[in-house]
Design a protein around this nucleic acid. Structure first.
Length: 206
DNA sequence: CATGGGATTGACT
DNA sequence: GTCAATCCCATGC
């Protein structure tokens, strides 16, 4: 078994923050479209930005399922956001997939997105689900043998260096550095926060 | 049962 | 930079 070929499986065994970091570089595939994960965020029931903070409710039920399940929910009444459920069943935690670098299915993705730039195809949590055609009906399906497939990094693309930053678009627990981006990727939803933890990239400055 | 608030995006000034 | 679109659900009366 070559190194990295089970990276996605190993990630599912880890605490959510480590899983989020480990999933950068892995792949998401659905109906002929595929991309490399270049941005993730971690959410855990112990902190108030996580939906599971409210406890086990109809909305959060999926978050408490076994690792490797997809949590897909509607955001702002408009968008579907894709998460990878992690940590043991009974613990509410998931990794939000925030951006992909498109690998396959560009034609379909362009058609669904109707945007001209390749770097803008999947550069956001709502954008990538629209590009891949992932809807709320896929909530609670398996990412290992279900319609959406979580896979290891492509063999010709070793996992990238990872930049750590603050999560985006939340109002609670904003101080937690639980956002992870592939260093230097042009496919992320937004540049990482000014200064702060960006030093992990090695050379980025502003 | 009424209400408020989003893990966002795209269009516009 | 600002702002509307749009809907599920958690909360409160």
């Amino acid at each position: 078994m070559s190194a990295g070929s089970d990276r996605h499986l190993r990630a599912l065994e880890l605490p959510v923050v480590d899983a989020a970091r480990m999933l950068v570089g892995c792949t998401i595939a659905y109906e002929g479209c595929c991309g490399v994960i270049v941005e993730t965020e971690a959410y855990h029931e112990a902190e108030p930005a996580c939906h599971a903070f409210a406890g086990l409710t109809p909305r959060t039920r999926t978050l408490f399922e076994a690792p490797g399940i997809a949590y897909v929910y509607r955001s702002y009444g408009i968008h579907a956001l894709l998460n990878v459920v992690v940590e043991p069943a009974g613990v509410g935690a998931a990794v939000l997939i925030r951006a992909l670098e498109p690998l396959a299915g560009h034609g379909e993705m362009f058609a669904r997105r109707a945007r001209p730039l390749e770097t803008d195809l999947c550069s956001g949590p709502g954008k990538l689900t629209q590009a891949l055609g992932i809807g709320l009906g896929l909530n609670a399906t398996s990412l290992l043998d279900g319609p959406i497939r979580l896979g290891p990094p492509p063999s010709d693309r070793p996992p990238p260096a990872v930049v750590t930053g603050l999560r985006i678009g939340i109002t609670r627990a904003v101080e937690l550095p639980w956002r992870f981006c592939a260093a230097g990727s042009r496919h992320v939803s937004r540049p990482w926060p000014p200064g702060l933890l960006a030093a992990a990239a090695g050379s980025s400055r502003g």
